[in-house]
Design a protein around this nucleic acid. Structure first.
Lengths: 202, 202
DNA sequence: TATGGCGTTCTACAGACGTAGAAGGGTGGC
DNA sequence: GCCACCCTTCTACGTCTGTAGAACGCCATA
């Protein structure tokens, strides 16, 4: 219960996220977190005694960063009106995806690892927060656009966009896809998202 | 090098896949595989001495099962003609997804875990070829349908469909989504896939 | 200056893990 | 009937991991 220094706590969880991204869940150990964070051995164990606590802290941290991230990226103004500017929206979503593939790649990798872990550990459900937020935004958009079945379509839309993200992340389509961070990739992603948006509102 | 009994080998890799699905990559150990397969302790270690070999065998097995699975599910006849029956195709894709969420859930979970693992272990990448096969089919379809940018759109399509699968698997959309295996789920998936197909060919 | 509390750092330990090699046992050739 | 071979099974061992608790040092108070 020695949760006294917030920056120390943040350093630990960030180190844990980096480890998960680099080595997978298997690489997440108390000692590795200490080393990665540059803190004396035993620190992670003192702050988060059990491994469960460690994983839960990671999930909470990712969820917090995600919601903060999504909050700063508001949907472009004028988009949720009756005649939404789908192209502009597609661009901004593509930019988000590209960010999550480059600067935010670490967190994205860790998030998917936790998502998989949450399959058999319901207490990790907070990791789903980003999806919930995105779904809400999508459903609001589709409702405003007057699309039928906004709830269902919004959910499908988010899932499909998530698929694009995972695809680029895992390199499944690496044969033809441009590397993340390049203008081509953003353009390619924007084209894909544009198609998805158009289909959702039609 | 004692790879003598094929059914023993298959039992080991299947047990390994089940373990990954249940406990994640962290649960994949030689001893756990032995126990799960009901074979004497030390068997997995004898067949697949290093952990790397164990993981690679798992990946290979998943890839084999995937390609065998996809080979039996041929695209419905008359679909790749000039006027493809998108609704029928959507139905059959939805059926595949639903199968992979129920009967094939174990393998689906293990596949995503391996996909994530392949991110930092390139030697695992070439073996996970299920996406390649699906992409080829999608691109052939779109080409036949006369869609522009068939290659790019086919890739996006597969990624989006994969997103639907992962979404249902991880329960991200569990708030509103019907449980896998039910007719509602198949119908819901079919609706989503239909939208994606229509957008891809337009 | 002494003292008490509290956050930090270190040490301990049991169990699990990866890996290697020895022991065991059954089968085919001679 | 005997032997050699090879697959299987068992044992060994050094390392890593999770978890606990003791030792330490710092700061505030008296």
């Amino acid at each position: 219960m020695a949760t006294t220094s917030p920056e120390r706590f943040a350093a630990l969880t960030d180190a844990a996220i980096a480890l998960i991204a680099e080595l997978g869940m298997r690489g997440l150990t108390h000692r590795a977190v200490d080393a990665r964070a540059g803190l004396p051995a035993g620190t992670a164990s003192a702050y988060l005694r059990t491994r469960k606590a460690l994983v839960e802290a990671v999930v909470q941290r990712i969820a917090d960063l995600d919601t903060a991230d999504l909050a700063t990226r508001r949907v472009p103004t004028g988009v949720v009106e009756a005649a939404p500017d789908l192209d502009a929206l597609a661009e901004s979503i593509a930019a988000l995806l590209d960010d999550w593939l480059t600067a935010g790649r670490t967190r994205t990798l860790a998030r998917y690892a936790c998502l998989l872990e949450a399959t058999h550990h319901p207490e990790l459900r907070p990791i789903l927060a980003y999806g919930v937020a995105m779904r809400a935004q999508a459903q609001a958009l589709l409702t405003a656009a007057g699309a039928p079945d906004a709830e269902q379509r919004g959910s499908h839309l988010v899932a499909a966009v998530d698929g694009l993200l995972f695809d680029r992340l895992a390199g499944a389509g690496s044969l033809a896809a441009p590397p993340p961070g390049t203008p081509q990739n953003r353009a390619d992603l924007a084209a894909a998202v544009r198609g998805l948006l158009r289909a959702a509102v039609s």
